[in-house]
Design a protein around this nucleic acid. Structure first.
Lengths: 109, 109
DNA sequence: GGAACATCTCAGTGACGACTGTGATGTTCA
DNA sequence: TGAACATCACAGTCGTCACTGAGATGTTCC
């Protein structure tokens, strides 16, 4: 609880707002419960769209919309199942996830 | 790039959606550029409302609204300047910030 | 006490985003 | 080939949230 208040109470006009666009972009994606759960589920390996929809209790086109946003952000990518190409499996791009984690950690550093 | 697709393509209905409410709450706060910048600025110590407003190029009541949300979440607290109590200085609650950081890191684990 | 300042609270407005429904695309199987 | 399935893309609707403006509270200084 050591609050270091400045001795002189003159507004510091040299204070610059830090660059937070990457953190905001990452946070905006996690700010939705469905997308946050999707990202957490994908931590354990690829998951099918229908599996995620069932786990979330959401419709598949709804999940698809969220996956499209995560895809556009580069956080996940899709590939069809080898044995049954009807199923589309999503997996995380760990490099992009690490970058998002770093951007968020920088704000809360 | 070792995508471990299941050999048998049967939807895993046992898949449960993980608990992400804490991460979503934290992300929702960071998802706004003003709040993200505020949290980042406060990492270096207490800052006055007028200083944050000047750095952000925002109006003071706007900044005050964002600070109220961060306050309600327990991430920041306010105290008046000892020498000049007209100025209200905000500082982070490092325990709460650490908890938010942990919740976010858990989703992107 | 009164004026100027710093900040808060609240209500109103506008914009962005989440969910839905529908139709389209690609895949499997009979 | 046709039916069923898995998923996507897009447009419409509705709710939430950020910014604004105005008024209220607390502080300092004359």
């Amino acid at each position: 609880m050591t609050t270091q208040l400045p001795v002189v109470c003159v507004p510091r006009l040299d204070l610059r707002a830090p660059d937070v666009i990457d953190a905001v972009a990452a946070a905006s994606l996690i700010a939705d419960p469905s997308r946050a759960a999707i990202l957490a589920m994908l931590a354990d390996g690829p998951v099918c769209v229908c599996e995620m929809a069932a786990a979330l209790g959401a419709r598949e086109n709804n999940v698809s919309n969220h996956l499209a946003r995560l895809r556009d952000a580069g956080l996940v990518r899709a590939s069809r199942h080898e044995a049954n190409a009807r199923f589309l499996y999503y997996e995380r791009d760990e490099a992009a996830v690490a970058a998002a984690r770093a951007a968020l950690a920088d704000v809360l550093r």
